[in-house]
Amino acid sequence: MEETKNRFMSVVYQLYSIKDGKSELEEQTGDERPFEFITGFSVALDAFEAKVKGLEKGSDFDFQLTPAEAFGEYIAEGVHKVGREVFTVNGHFDHENIFEGAVITLMDNEDHQFMAKVAKIEEDGVTVDTNHPLAGKTLNFKGRVIENREATEEEIQHLIKHMTGGCSGGCSGCGDHHDGCGCGDHDCGCGDHDHHHHHDGGCGCGHCH
């Protein structure tokens, strides 16, 4: 297949994580809601894109990505404890959105957004894990290419507009839902609850949900 930088791709897949010899289904897409992306914009994991962009429409695929090719190794230093005041709204702790197991969006001191999972809530602070949920795991993608064609200028411009929207546009694209497990950024669902809390130092100075 002729290779061009910007190809519109639509794929369906099942994603399995493999760790310690055990395989676990993490995510799957279907024909009614395939994962769609344009190559060359880092919407998908580079290694995922490299594996599928040369496949013809209708082709099946089954491949593995190492942690280094996917979301990296699990880093213990990615776990931080921050003050409860970071998650206070109008003087009250945000119990509705901040609970153990919740995936939230934090913002560092340079206004860079990143995802974190609430690991523990205690009286003296909240422990958050900034590692990707699939960090340290080998990924196995099994699926089929539904579409692979040159992207139109309109599609490219629409993607660029979406990618540059930022959190001011309702947090569109700031999330990291397994990213098509790494295959793309999805909305974090900030919606009408788009707000930030700031504090000095630490791993994050705000959250939006």
Rank of each mutant, 00 (worst) to 15 (best):
T39K: 02
G40C: 04
F41E: 02
F41Y: 04
S42F: 05
V43C: 12
V43A: 14
L45F: 10
D46R: 14
K51C: 08
K53G: 00
L55M: 11
K57S: 13
G58H: 04
S59N: 15
S59H: 14
F61M: 10
F61S: 06
F63C: 00
L65H: 10
T66M: 10
P67F: 05
P67Q: 07
E69H: 12
G72R: 12
G72H: 14
E73K: 11
Y74H: 01
I75Q: 12
I75H: 07
A76K: 12
A76R: 13
E77S: 15
E77M: 13
E77L: 14
G78A: 11
G78L: 04
G78T: 04
V79S: 02
V79W: 06
V79L: 00
H80P: 02
K81G: 01
K81M: 06
V82H: 05
V82N: 00
G83Q: 12
G83K: 07
T88I: 03
N90C: 03
G91Y: 13
G91N: 09
G91L: 09
H92N: 09
D94S: 01
D94L: 01
E96A: 12
E96V: 09
N97Q: 04
N97C: 03
I98S: 00
I98W: 05
F99H: 15
F99P: 10
E100S: 06
G101R: 07
A102N: 13
T105Q: 02
T105M: 03
M107E: 10
E110F: 14
D111P: 00
D111K: 15
Q113H: 07
Q113N: 01
F114R: 00
F114I: 02
M115L: 00
A116F: 09
K117M: 06
K117R: 15
K117V: 12
K117E: 11
V118E: 08
K120I: 10
E122R: 15
E122V: 11
E122S: 15
E123L: 15
E123S: 06
E123Y: 10
E123P: 01
E123N: 11
G125Y: 06
V126F: 08
V128D: 10
T130K: 10
T130Q: 07
H132F: 08
H132S: 05
H132G: 02
A135H: 09
G136A: 03
K137N: 06
K137P: 00
T138K: 06
L139Q: 08
N140P: 05
N140Q: 15
F141H: 04
K142G: 05
V145L: 13
E150V: 15
E150H: 04
T152H: 10
T152D: 09
E154M: 03
E154F: 05
H158G: 02
H158T: 12
L159I: 07
K161R: 14
H162Y: 10
